[in-house]
Structure formats: C-alpha cells, structure tokens
Nucleic acid binder design. Structure first.
Lengths: 190, 190
DNA sequence: CAGTTGTAGTTGAGCGCTCAACAAAGAGCT
DNA sequence: AGCTCTTTGTTGAGCGCTCAACTACAACTG
C-alpha cells in the first residue's frame, strides 16, 4: 500500500541545488505576495475574490455573455463544484443568471447580467493597475517576454497530468486497489 | 463613496497590451495549475497542506527547531492569525509543541517535535520531486536563472506595500474617512 | 429496447484562510 | 506611580475551496 509516487522512492530523491532552492523560494514568495496583494485589492475595491473576477472576465468576453457551465469551468481552470458554488453566490448578487439548455437537459448556461457587466467594468481598472504596478512596472521588456515563455513551459508541462485524473493513472501500473470510490455502485433510481 | 484606489481613476487606466495580457494569463494559468498540483500532491502523500509544509521546513531549519511565533509568521509570510490556527492544528497532530517565553510573557515559542521532524522528512522527497518535475525539468538553465531574477523583482517591488498596512497609507492623502475600525477603543479590563 | 457507462451539474461536510475583536503584557512618557 | 501606545498571540465568524456523494440525463452497447 501507499504506492502513490511512481518515482521519488526507489532512487535517492533528486534534491534541489542551492541555486534552485533560491529560485524556488523567491518564486514562492513572489507568487504568494502577488496573490495576496491582488486578492485583497479586488476584495476591497470590488467586493469579489479574484476567482469570481476571472469568471466574470471570461463571461464578458464570450460572444453573447453566455457560456455553458462546463466550458466556463475549463476556461477558468476550476472544478465543476467550485464553479457551481461560485455561480450560486454570484447569482445571489445579481451578477449572473442561470438558464437551462434546451437541447441537453442536464446542461446549464451561465449568463452575465447587466449588473454583472457593471461590476466587472468597475473592478477592472483598479485590478489592471495593481497588476501593472506589481508585475510589468517591475520588469524589463526582456523579462516580461521570458516570463511568458517560462509560464507557458510550466503550464504545458503540467497540462497532461494536472486534472483530477492523477491517481487514476497510477492505477495503470497494475495496482488493483481501486478503493477510492470511483466505480461507485450508485443505486439507480426511476 | 467607493474611494479606495489612489491612482487608476482620474487618468485613463493603463490597460495591458495584447502581449502583456497573454503573459499575464499564461502566468496565472501556470501558477494556478502548479499550486493545485503541489497542493494535492502534499495533501495526498503527506496529509498536510503546503502552508503547513512550509512552516515545518522553516522550523526544521531553525537552530534548535524552535522559533518565536511572530518570527515564524514573518518567515512564512503569513498573518499571526493564520499561523496561530495552523500551529493549533499541528499541535493537535503532535508535530509542534508550544512553549511559553520566560522573558516576554506574552510571547510563545513553536517547537518542532520528533514526530513533526519525521513528518516533514517523509513529505520532502515527494514534494521536491513534484516541484522538480513541474518546474525545473521544464526549463532551461537560462530560464531558471531568469525566473529567479523575475521573482525577486516582483517580490521586492511588492515588499514595501504588501503588509496589511495598505489602506492605512491611503489615509495619508487627506482622506479623513478612517471608519475602518483602526483606532479601536478597546474597553480595557483587569 | 434494456443495461451499462459517461457526462453535467449540484449539494453538504470539512478545512484553511481572512478579518475584526480581543486579552495580556511590554515600552514610553509625564 | 499612572497613562497611553504598541506588540504578541488567540479566538470565532464568515467565506471560498475541496472532496465525495448524488441526481439527472445522454450515449453507447449487445
């Protein structure tokens, strides 16, 4: 049991060098502070967390300010659960309206309301200014370019293994201990 | 009302260019996925969130595995409140022990226990491997170097204005609306 | 067509974090 | 000494997120 890690167990772990450790710590610090900064900025000035902001942005850029819940979840890199909770809250605030899908009866659309549009319109300038001041004003053009490349490399490297599939893959190496409740024998109804 | 922002209101906001927006989005995606990845990795393999891991690391590297709560809070870039809650949980798990400070009677030490040391010792290889695979294996040496510089620039640019002081500064520009409950008239007791 | 498998979305419990309020003690001032 | 200001740490409420369970429908299969 406790299979989990495929590597990092039989061989001596590939520890980080001092330089790498320095880079990693600086990165963690920068990301942590930046996140805290933009988070409280948005919460304070616009009364919404950053995650909601990104949902509204995505919706506002969509053809008719409408999106399927699932697509919206993918676009914002959030779980369906998270998005569902989030949209529920934003619906209560009047920023988003839910609508049933006629062709696929389990589906739902999330619709940006005029009030939601106003909310993001009001939030955007302050947020963009905060991002510019914290990031782009601190970097040279060359560094900005590199940050883009670096981010893409990390993101693309993570894409294949990132979704919650993770440990589902580990089942491939012959471990039949699939006791994580996947194949749940739901007592069907109706 | 809705004063808040010092800049980004009288002038037209300095919107991001298309390139900058692309960089910013890739960065957000990378950070979001990376965070989710390491978070679930640690939670899954070691039963602790990343924040606790960093607390244990900081403690384990300290001279006698002891630190003042405040210093520990600063070192981990967390609020006193957060650390207090975290240490409470970790104390319940037997990873940390609290100890009163003899010279300053309001102070407290956080002490890493042997069990805590074992916990982080067990957690480290998997976590380091995840970080290496997600970050350093994806980047060239040059990119790693640049990531360090970029992170330092962002972090150092944020350091002055980052603490919760933020809006306390905005009171300097002549806005007397200090109704955010700062100067709280605590009813003394004895 | 029934039976199975996959997909879309919701729900509630539990957890970590934030925020404001608080208690207790040090530090400075008169 | 007494008074205020500051620092240290804790606490509880509220919130967003995760995780697992669940409903409901769609799509594939024999």
């Amino acid at each position: 049991m406790m299979v989990g890690m495929d590597e990092a167990r039989q061989h001596e772990p590939r520890w980080l060098s001092d330089d790498e450790q320095g880079v990693w710590r600086a990165f963690r610090q920068a990301v942590g502070m930046l996140n805290a900064h933009t988070e409280t900025q948005l919460q304070h000035d616009a009364g919404m967390p950053q995650a909601y902001y990104e949902v509204l942005v995505e919706l506002s850029e969509s053809p008719d300010q409408v999106m399927r819940m699932s697509d919206l979840a993918i676009a914002t890199r959030s779980s369906r659960s998270r998005l569902s909770h989030a949209v529920a809250k934003m619906e209560a605030k009047g920023w988003v309206r839910r609508e049933a899908c006629p062709t696929d009866k389990r589906g739902a659309f999330a619709h940006l309301t005029p009030a939601g549009f106003e909310a993001i319109k009001a939030a955007a300038p302050g947020h963009v200014e905060a991002v510019r001041a914290a990031v782009f004003d601190q970097l040279t053009a060359e560094q900005v370019r590199m940050l883009g490349e670096i981010s893409e490399a990390i993101r693309d490297g993570l894409r294949p293994r990132c979704p919650e599939v993770e440990r589902r893959l580990s089942a491939e190496d012959g471990d039949p201990a699939a006791e994580d409740g996947d194949g749940d024998d739901t007592g069907r109804a109706a």
